[in-house]
Design a protein around this nucleic acid. Structure first.
Lengths: 150, 150
DNA sequence: GCTGAAAATCGTCCAAC
DNA sequence: GTTGGACGATTTTCAGC
């Protein structure tokens, strides 16, 4: 059951999505509430699980991982156990794993150092998960991590 | 030109990726440095653009947007100007936009309230960007936003 | 580049309205 | 929800190594 969100909570989430380290003082000012009120609202959002956490946004290119790609996974053996996420979790290049409807069973988002690293990663994925892969290389990212909803 | 990162900076980024609101005090303890040292390293990473910012991680289901999907865009008119990201930026359901190599020109990550909202969004995208679309619905997200590299 | 300490700010709790 | 106060923790700066 999900209680519908109040506008003020939406505003808080919008601000925190854009600046996750915003102080409660600033936050209170931006959403037009007292510090105490904002404080308890944020705590309630965290407890409810609406706010799952906070993450630094890192520039992949500058950390030596300039190549981003999406990899679609299709099981070779349709009867195999569906534990792909767990089998691929140890690969640090895998930033995200989505279970999807469509031709593929899963889509991975990966970040690697270059073509050679990608080739090596694909080999590991195919071997360890027994899947065929289809890779879409990301050329650039016009925008990402925008705040949800309106 | 990207200066290769020192191990200590990698450690800082790893911690901040997992807990973006981590205090400098904690951070200093975790990476084995003084508070001041960590502080100036973080500031330098921010200035260099390695740290692009901080974002709250929000549970899409709990904010009334339980349906996530990837939408591949293929231009109908190959001679049309390549301003798709800008033309779709105003659609708040679009969380991210990637320029890609492959069959499609762009891939969007979107979050909507349900099938009807998705249908409506697809109509808007096709109309406003003059593209054909291929949509992959996300069923679940085993993991996301993991720290980059090792 | 690191440390340690001072000064300003912030997070957190609480009582009262 | 709000205000105001209080206290400890944190951020931020700076001199010195």
């Amino acid at each position: 059951m999900t209680t519908p969100l109040e506008p003020i909570d939406r505003a808080i989430l919008r601000e925190l999505t854009q600046d996750g380290r915003c102080s409660f003082t600033d936050l209170a000012e931006r959403v037009g509430l007292s510090v105490s009120a904002v404080h308890q609202r944020v705590r309630r959002l965290e407890q409810r699980g609406v706010l799952k956490g906070y993450a630094a946004r890192v520039d992949g290119e500058q950390v030596g991982l300039p190549l981003t790609a999406f990899i679609s996974l299709t099981p070779i053996d349709p009867a195999a156990p569906d534990d792909y996420p767990h089998r691929l979790e140890h690969l640090s290049a895998v930033e995200a794993c989505y279970s999807v409807a469509g031709d593929a069973s899963y889509v991975l988002k990966v970040r690697v150092a270059g073509p050679t690293a990608l080739e090596d990663l694909l080999r590991q994925i195919r071997e360890q998960a027994n899947v065929s892969t289809r890779t879409t290389v990301v050329l650039s990212t016009p925008y990402e991590d925008r705040p949800p909803g309106v």
